[in-house]
């Protein structure tokens, strides 16, 4: 499977100032590639949510973008702390976000459900003490 684009974005924990920059760049790149507005929007929403989760909840990690002719893939991998109960975390409204995140308009507990709803493929793996990996796929064409 040929890769049209591969980009990696390190995302720091609690770096609220830069939060969202990776997603803005991802959106720009995909737009240049000619990805349809509809898919672009779904990727942008999921990417922004997953990037903010890295900033708000993780100890830092990497957001990876991979584009093939068939799909856009987004992979978020972090260094911890991991999610004790993934099923609970996936529920709308469940959030452990702190006051800073909430004051900025986040922490509504809608991020993971938003990602799942927008992606065609969604997979989450998490281990406490090791970290969380989220893989999303968006079909093209």
């Amino acid at each position: 499977m040929s890769t049209l684009l591969h980009a990696e974005y390190p995302v720091d924990a609690e770096d609220y100032t830069r939060a969202g920059e990776a997603s803005a760049d991802i959106k720009r790149k995909l737009k240049q590639l000619g990805v349809s507005a509809q898919v672009l929007r779904r990727v942008a929403v999921a990417s922004y949510e997953v990037e903010l989760n890295l900033v708000i909840h993780s100890m830092g990690g990497t957001l990876t973008l991979e584009v093939s002719p068939e799909r856009v893939r987004l992979i978020s991998a972090d260094r911890g702390p991991g999610i004790p109960n993934v099923e609970l975390a996936m529920r709308e409204g469940w959030s452990t976000a702190n006051e800073t995140a909430r004051s900025l308009g986040f922490g509504a507990g809608m991020g993971l459900p938003n990602m799942k709803r927008n992606a065609d493929e969604f997979d989450i793996e998490s281990e406490v003490g090791r970290g969380t990996t989220i893989r999303m796929g968006f079909l093209l064409g």
Binding site: T17, A19, G20, S23, A24, K27, A37, R41, A44, V45, S47, Y48, L104, G105, F106
Partner: peptide
Amino acid sequence: GLTNPHVLRTADMLD
């Protein structure tokens, strides 16, 4: 009522 930069980034994601 939120005037922080994230509102703009959110707006950007959604065009």
